[in-house]
Each structure stands twice: as C-alpha cells, then as structure tokens.
Design a protein around this nucleic acid. Structure first.
Lengths: 152, 152
DNA sequence: TTAAGTGCAAATATTTTGCTGTCAC
DNA sequence: GTGACAGCAAAATATTTGCACTTAA
C-alpha cells in the first residue's frame, strides 16, 4: 500500500505518455526525481539531482520539463513565501487532495495540512463566486510548535 | 465613509512613522502609490508611477521600500499564479481581514473574496497544528463566471 | 521519416549589493 | 551632527529564447 501522498513509481511518466507526450531519457530522470522527492525542490535542486544521474542534462531541459508538467496539471508550483530571500519556485506532484503549506519563518520547516474546512471553502467559492477552481495555492507563514517552545 | 479595502490617505506613512521609520520624499511617493492603487502592482509598475511623480526615483529605492513595508507587516506579497508568464511579485496593503485571490486563467482578472470559513480554517490550523499564523497567501486559479459564459 | 526534444550560448527579467554622497531628525 | 537613506553601477539570481543537432515514435 502506498504511503499517503506517494504514488506508484512511474506514474508521472505514464500520465504524460497518456497525454501523448514523447518520453525521453532526460524526462524519465527528471520525473523520477520529482516523484521520489521527500521535500519541495526548486529547478536548481532538480537540475543538480538530474546531473548526478546524467551529467549531460541541461538546465533548460529541466525548465522545459517543468513547464510541460505544469501545462498538463501534473505538478503545482509554489513559492513557499520566499523563505531565506529565495525567489525561486518549488515544485510538487499535484496531490489528490489540495493541501495547505505552512512555512515556519524561524526554522524554515514546511508542513502540509489537509482540511475538510478547506474543501468546504473551495466549494463555497465555486458556488458563491461562480468561479471554477482549477488550481489552488495556499501558503501560510508563521511559527511552528517547536520554535514557539524555544527561547528567542 | 471609506470604501471597503480603502484606508485613510497617509495611513501607511503614519504607521511607518509610528514604527520609528524615517520619512523621505521618495517613500511618501511610493506609499501614496500603494495606498491609492486600484489593482495589484508589481515593483516595475510602482517604479513607473513613482517616476511619473519624481523622475529621479530609482528602482532600488522602490525595492528597499517594499522590503521595509514587508518587514513591518504593512504589505503582503503575492504572485497571482504568475499569470501571463510573469515572475514578478505583486503588492497590496495588508488588509484588515485576510482574503482569497482568485485569478482567472482565461481573462486574467483578479477577484478577492473574504470568507468566514477561511477564518475558521486558520483557527483550526493554529489549534490543531500549534502553528502561529503571521501571514497568509491564498491564490486560486480557475475560470471566472464571465469567461465560463463565453464560447471558447 | 519527421516532428519534437536536447544542449549550448546568449538574452531577458527580477532583485540585490557595494559604495558614495545626501538628508531627516 | 550623525545615522539612516538615495542614487548609481554592477552583480547575482532565475528563467527564457534562438538555433543547430539528435532522437522517439
């Protein structure tokens, strides 16, 4: 049984192929990196991991693959509130259920949280605003339980 | 009576002064632009408006003022899902009540929405996750009522 | 075979930093 | 008067584009 949030290996690859997209050695590597990531990666981190598997992979290929995945709605793009002054984007496989990202402004930890209330909020928006939601991005900055216990 | 979402003119300036921040001609211009904005502005748009009022104002001054405002929690930074391939950030005065940003992926219109359900969601997170929320950023991409009525 | 994809180089976009002179308080 | 601020130049970071070669289907 897959862990929550984890999908069968090769799933992204299968979905892209189902969308009629051509599969290449470079894409397989990049998809595998995104699928097996245990934390949020930015384009630079994906590039570094990809080059560890195949030194010839170019930065541009990473960006183009990310664009492709976004276009097919298979990954979500996050900013995670630009912790640490970063202005890069982070990527994650689109989850089956939307979740909220909590970024600790002190230790930088990112926590994810699913909530039935959030599902209700989306339903309310779709109904009251006649707005059809395709993608959501919820980021909250604050202070995590651990940091709140520590002295300043 | 002020319009919803609108504050007394000079309010940002007063708040910065109250925080012990030095007030300059350039800052006054930039603050006034942010306060009177009717839509979300990015740094470039703020710069252009500022230079219309005072051609000597430098881009760097705009960025430094935005950093200052963020540090004092007086503006929020948004990405608005990078509609149109932008990668710039947008800024808005921090509202008294958090709201959700809805970005139409077809016409680009940004709509804001306040919801008691969202307040409940935040309360749930603070309670269940022991996470103290300092700033929120909620962006939803989708299709607005008008665009849904139009033929493709 | 051939349309799509890759790598390389260069360009673009956005934001930040170092430094020197200026101004708010 | 002095420490914070502004402008200028340059750098750093992040991402995109043009083009010739390669490859998946």
């Amino acid at each position: 049984m897959p862990m929550p949030g984890t999908a069968a290996p090769g799933r992204l690859q299968a979905e892209l192929i189902a969308h009629g997209v051509r599969m290449t050695r470079q894409r397989r590597i990049i998809l595998e990196i995104i699928e097996s990531a245990t934390k949020h990666l930015d384009a630079g981190a994906i590039l570094r991991k990809a080059q560890a598997a195949d030194p010839g992979i170019d930065r541009v290929t990473v960006y183009r693959t990310l664009t492709l995945l976004k276009r097919h709605g298979l990954v979500d793009e996050l900013d995670l509130l630009h912790l640490g002054g970063q202005s890069a984007h982070f990527y994650e496989r689109r989850p089956s259920r939307d979740h909220i990202h909590m970024a600790c402004l002190r230790c930088g930890k990112i926590t994810e949280f699913e909530s039935q209330l959030f599902e209700r909020l989306k339903a309310q928006i779709q109904r009251d605003c006649q707005f059809h939601i395709a993608v959501t991005r919820v980021e909250m900055g604050g202070y995590c339980a651990e940091c709140r216990r520590q002295p300043l």
